[in-house]
């Protein structure tokens, strides 16, 4: 007679999982969307991927163990999902198309360059142009204000490697900014 009871518990669990995802969306959906955007740099794609990330979390919620916080666990799923996307055939195909478009001179590009004068614009733009491995750690550390230990849990990378990357990112940025100023 045990079986029906177990099933009951399973369905309670379903509602509980829905509630958890609801809460996570309320608290972190903008942060996750921004994280995803730093990876993919396209608003619609970022929204699609964020949607998929919350669905993925829902499906994996039973695998969550208390060794990390729900937040770092969510960030980790998000980061992996973005990396998978960037590796995908679909993404490679569309970026190739974009690259072809880049060779076609357009009006909007020059307009962008004119607007990007303000200091904050320059900083934001420079960070978004960093290679992914630096952009990732810079975003998580300075925007999300996470510690290197937390970032290491999210990215599955050694804190020392992350430290080196941050240092290197600073060098690249200083170099860029002095060039801008000239």
């Amino acid at each position: 007679m045990n079986e029906p009871e177990q099933m009951e518990a399973g369905f309670e669990n379903f509602d509980e999982r829905v509630q958890i995802i609801d809460k996570l969306m309320d608290e972190y959906s903008d942060a996750i969307l921004h994280l995803v955007y730093t990876y993919v740099k396209n608003e619609t794609t970022a929204e699609d991927l964020t949607q998929e990330i919350f669905i993925k979390c829902f499906e994996k919620l039973h695998q969550f163990n208390e060794r990390s916080t729900l937040k770092t666990w969510l960030y980790r799923i998000a980061s992996n999902h973005c990396k998978d996307y960037l590796k995908s055939w679909h993404y490679r195909k569309i970026t190739l198309n974009d690259k072809i478009f880049d060779y076609i001179p357009s009006m909007s590009k020059t307009e962008d360059e004119i607007i990007a004068k303000d200091e904050e614009d320059i900083l934001a733009k420079a960070v978004m142009e960093l290679p992914l491995k630096y952009r990732e750690v810079v975003f998580l550390h300075y925007y999300e204000e996470l510690t290197l230990k937390e970032i290491s849990k999210i990215t599955a990378m050694n804190p020392n490697t992350l430290k080196t990357r941050l240092k290197r990112a600073k060098e690249i940025l200083r170099h860029k900014m002095t060039k801008e100023a000239e």
Binding site: D121, L123, A124, V138, H141, Y142, A169
Partner: peptide, 14 residues
């Protein structure tokens, strides 16, 4: 160089 990054990104890209 990243001190103001948070507010910079909030006001621009995001």
């Amino acid at each position: 160089p990243f001190t103001n990054l948070k507010s910079a990104l909030k006001k621009t890209v995001f």
